[in-house]
């Protein structure tokens, strides 16, 4: 293995968390997400069991070969997947920045700047990235909480009714979409062999999914 550093389970939880939440907050994909209604929050909560179901295959694999990262088993496919995934993320970020605050700036500026920033972190290795997550994740989670507190007076719970207007099916579909989207973020699975306590991975994953689901904006 190339990487010698180990990260703690706590750090993995935070890595997973910021990995999705950052993008969610920048782009708010829920605007265009099924079930396109006030029942989105139910979808978000229902996504929790979906997450688990979708994560099961990888989890069992991880249990079985906790020493072997997925990238070693299906390298070529994964490399392509990564390239694709990373470029999508960079593009989404750049798209957000050029849409609102920097309309005249070419998108390549943001992509290169973000990519260089990420490359610098990669250069320092996994341990650094893990520690980085430990700083960034609490900041993000607490700012989400703060924003929630600040808008609490404008929250009108009655907007969430009628509950299940069109039945459960669209809501379930929404939950699936949310879970599927997040599970796409599971490219972080390759982190599993670098974790301190592989035994506790089940709990760590459950915490990750809980944070995703309770955040109530489908990630």
């Amino acid at each position: 293995m190339l990487e010698k550093g180990k990260i703690s389970n706590k750090q993995m939880v935070m890595l997973f968390t910021i990995c999705r939440l950052m993008l969610t907050m920048a782009f708010l994909p829920y605007v265009n997400s099924p079930p396109w209604s006030q029942d989105l929050w139910i979808s978000s909560i229902l996504a929790f069991p979906m997450h688990i179901i979708l994560a099961l295959p990888v989890y069992t694999l991880a249990k079985r070969f906790s020493k072997l990262s997925l990238i070693e088993s299906i390298e070529a496919m994964y490399v392509w997947f990564f390239l694709h995934r990373t470029s999508t993320i960079l593009r989404e970020l750049g798209e957000f920045l050029t849409a609102v605050p920097y309309p005249e700036t070419p998108i390549i500026v943001f992509i290169i700047a973000s990519a260089l920033c990420a490359a610098y972190a990669v250069f320092h290795g996994l341990e650094t990235i893990g520690r980085l997550a430990e700083i960034i994740a609490p900041v993000i989670l607490s700012s989400v909480f703060l924003v929630f507190l600040l808008i609490a007076k404008d929250v009108d719970i009655s907007n969430l009714t009628p509950v299940l207007e069109d039945g459960i099916v669209p809501v379930l579909y929404g939950a699936f979409v949310i879970a599927a989207r997040t599970t796409m973020g599971m490219f972080l699975w390759i982190l599993i062999p670098y974790i301190n306590e592989p035994r506790k991975i089940r709990n760590s994953l459950l915490i990750v999914f809980l944070i995703f689901s309770l955040h109530l904006t489908p990630s």
């Binding site: 920097y102 005249e104 700036t105 070419p106 390549i108 500026v109 260089l116």
Partner: peptide, 12 residues
């Protein structure tokens, strides 16, 4: 990268 950053000053 540096040049593109510097040039960005003229854009937005």
């Amino acid at each position: 990268a540096i040049m593109s950053t510097a040039l960005a000053g003229c854009w937005s």
